[in-house]
């Protein structure tokens, strides 16, 4: 089956929260098949790489298989935190979208949720 290199946004959703200079981002698979993929592929090394330019120094990763969810705790990613950061997005609320965009994986059509807009990218 054809696989396309798609953002993980195609199979999972996410939300970012902040505490001090630490950002936490959940990554939640829509389907069981998606959970098997993110469990294997969304490593803390990859996540650290994605947030390194923001100053991230360390990533902790927690698994919640019953909820098909991962939780990444990304240290020093918020430019000092909500009260010190110079960034437009001082809380790092938009970092969930950054993760969903930057983490890319080979995805086949059958892994997408029903009616996913990504289906259009598969021509056959």
């Amino acid at each position: 089956m054809t696989k396309l290199n798609l953002p993980i946004h195609s199979i999972a959703h996410a939300r970012a929260g902040d505490k001090g200079d630490v950002s936490n981002i959940s990554l939640i698979a829509y389907l069981d098949s998606g959970w098997r993929i993110i469990e294997k592929s969304a490593t803390k090394e990859k996540v650290l790489e994605i947030f390194k330019h923001m100053g991230a120094t360390k990533v902790d990763r927690y698994e919640l298989p019953k909820l098909r969810a991962l939780n990444f705790v990304i240290h020093s990613a918020l430019g000092g935190g909500v009260n010190s950061s110079l960034r437009l997005d001082r809380h790092g609320k938009t970092l969930s979208s950054h993760l969903l965009h930057e983490l890319k994986l080979p995805i086949s059509k059958d892994l997408l949720p029903i009616n996913s807009p990504y289906l259009k990218k598969f021509k056959d």
Partner: peptide
């Protein structure tokens, strides 16, 4: 939904245990 609950559950959570 399960998805809305899961997103909020992990919001500002570090170690879920």
């Amino acid at each position: 939904s399960k998805a809305t609950i899961t997103e909020q559950l992990l919001y500002e959570t570090h170690d879920p245990s």
